[in-house]
Every structure is written in structure tokens, then in C-alpha cells.
Design a protein around this nucleic acid. Structure first.
Lengths: 156, 156
DNA sequence: ACAGATGGTCTCACTATGAGACCACGTCTT
DNA sequence: AAGACGTGGTCTCATAGTGAGACCATCTGT
């Protein structure tokens, strides 16, 4: 990531720029662009996590809950429904005694793994930089709020 | 996208799988994984849109609002602050008479364009499939709710 | 003199979210 | 035999997040 020559970035920038101009020009407003709908779904807090969990193998409802511990049943159900509605995962009920339900990625869902992997790799490679930026930003903000040095002892 | 051989998907799947196992194994719960923080920020409704807008060129506050029409001032301010805090964009105030403010991507922010472009390309390539899946799902759901054919005229 | 544009902040109402109770069913424990 | 537990959910309720729009100080144009 760090070793990439800058020339590798330009196509991405231009790719996005061209897309964006097309959206703006064709639809006249970006809000109606259909990619927005896709990005919004992917953009919610849990979709990507669930897709990543299912990337390993099919999971049952409770397994996903254990894999993503801080999701509530309510949101898990809802997000799974949304992902199923979008054709990214499939839901299969097994007539076992307490009926069990298995969720797995569809072909469409699997095709999402490529770009998602790129994003996760970026996040992993740059989380330290982002963390440092946050610390620096918060420190600067604290200085602006209370610009008297010597009175600041522990920060807040 | 459609023409990709399946073998191209496997590395992505395994890459995510391996990452996920490492998160689960090392931190013992996925909720503390730092990538989560990054993904959450990128996952909010507006961050990606703003980054995409800034991919073209630096924008002023009002320009971004015009580029992303359905964002409120409140959320625009907040999202810009967050992106700035994470070191993805920089904020520069010009001492013009009504002072103007320019936002631009930092090097870190530009490095995000590559994976983001991949994601947007995927969204663009698959939005039709997703739309079709939604229609199919809603139709199936309507059938389940009201399984009597002949009584359903217009649907709902 | 007054509207408009600049980049925000603040309040208020509405919506989305999380915590947890509840359900029907069957198995396991006591 | 009675009660606890696990299955996959749904439902309600309190709280958190969000969008709409008023408001602010300053300068420019008419």
C-alpha cells in the first residue's frame, strides 16, 4: 500500500471523477443515482460485517450473532432480510427439530468480496495512520478550546 | 465483472476469511477490532459520497452541498469534521471577506480512492441485478402474505 | 437600506437503533 | 413431571442519531 507509486492512484481518482460527472450530468442530481441505493445498503453499520462473516462459510443465525457480538437480534434480522432482498445472501430453513436457518452468500454476494476485500485491506493498512490523525486532531482541538498551557494537566 | 473467472474470487474470499479469523482469534471478539472503527466511519451514509465528490477537485462547503443535494448542513458539517479528524481531508480557511473554506483530500484520503473506486465500480456493474433481486423478493413476499391468487389485482 | 451569499451552530421533531421481554417448539436435566 | 435451555425470530420501549429549518456575523451588490 505504502509502496504503490502515485501513478497507480490517478486512474482511481479519474474513474471516480468521471463517474461522478456522469451522475451529475445525466441525472441532474446525485440523489437519484441508483448507485446511491447500493452504497447506502453497504454503508449501514452491519451489512459489511455480516458479509465478511459469511465469506468464511455459511453461518446460522446464532453463529452470526456470536461472530458479530455487538449486534442486536433485531438489527441482525433486519440486516439479513435486507441483504437477502438485495440478492447478496440466501436463506435456507432446515426442518430440524428446533428449525435451523442457514445464511450463505449468493454468487452476487461473493462477487462483492473482491472490492470489499480491497476496502478492508485499506482499512487494515491505514488504521494506524487514522488513529494517529485522530489523536493529533483531538490534541489540536483541545489546544484551541483551552489555549493556556500549564493549566492543562491531564487533558480530558 | 461478469467475465471474471471464479478463480479470481477465491483470493478475496480467503483474504477476508483469514482476516476475520485473525480478528476473532487475536482480540477474541470482533467488536474491539480497529478495522471496525474505520469501516464504521466509511460506512456512514455521507462519508463516501463526500470523498467521491472531493475526488474530482477541492470543493468549498457550499459546493459540496450542491454536489450532494440531500445532505443537511448539520450532517455535512459533522461528516466533514469526522473526515478531517481521521486525516482523510484537510480544511483550509481563506480570509476572504465572507471567509471561504476549502476542503480537499489528503494523501491518505486519495489512497482511499482506489478501493472506493472498486466498490463503486461493483455497485455500478451490479445495480441492475440488485434491483431485479429486490423486485423478485418483494413479489415473493407479497405472495406469501396473500397467497390466494385471483384476489390479488393490483398488488400493493 | 435591504437582500443575498459566506460557513456554520442550535433547537426541535422524527426516525432509527439497542436492550430486553416474549413466543412456540422440542430436548435435556433434575 | 417440571423447569431450564436452545432454536429463530417478533414486539415494545427508551434512547440515540438524523433532517429541517431558524439564526448569526460579516461583507457585496442594488
Amino acid at each position: 500500500m505504502t509502496g504503490l507509486p502515485p501513478s497507480n492512484r490517478l486512474p482511481a481518482r479519474q474513474g471516480l471523477a468521471v463517474r461522478f460527472e456522469q451522475w451529475s450530468a445525466e441525472a441532474f442530481d446525485a440523489s437519484r443515482c441508483p448507485v446511491r441505493g447500493v452504497l447506502d445498503r453497504l454503508g449501514d453499520k452491519w451489512s459489511t460485517l455480516i458479509v465478511i462473516a459469511l465469506a468464511r462459510r455459511p453461518h446460522r443465525f446464532g453463529e452470526i450473532r456470536r461472530a458479530v457480538p455487538d449486534i442486536s437480534k433485531r438489527m441482525l434480522t433486519q440486516t439479513l432480510r435486507d441483504l437477502e432482498r438485495d440478492g447478496l445472501i440466501s436463506r435456507q430453513v432446515f426442518p430440524t427439530k428446533p428449525p435451523s436457518v442457514e445464511y450463505r452468500l449468493t454468487a452476487l454476494g461473493e462477487s462483492l468480496l473482491e472490492p470489499l476485500n480491497a476496502l478492508v485491506a485499506w482499512a487494515e493498512a491505514n488504521q494506524a495512520r487514522i488513529g494517529a490523525a485522530r489523536v493529533a486532531f483531538d490534541a489540536a482541538a483541545a489546544m484551541t478550546e483551552a489555549p493556556l498551557p500549564g493549566l492543562e494537566v491531564g487533558g480530558r
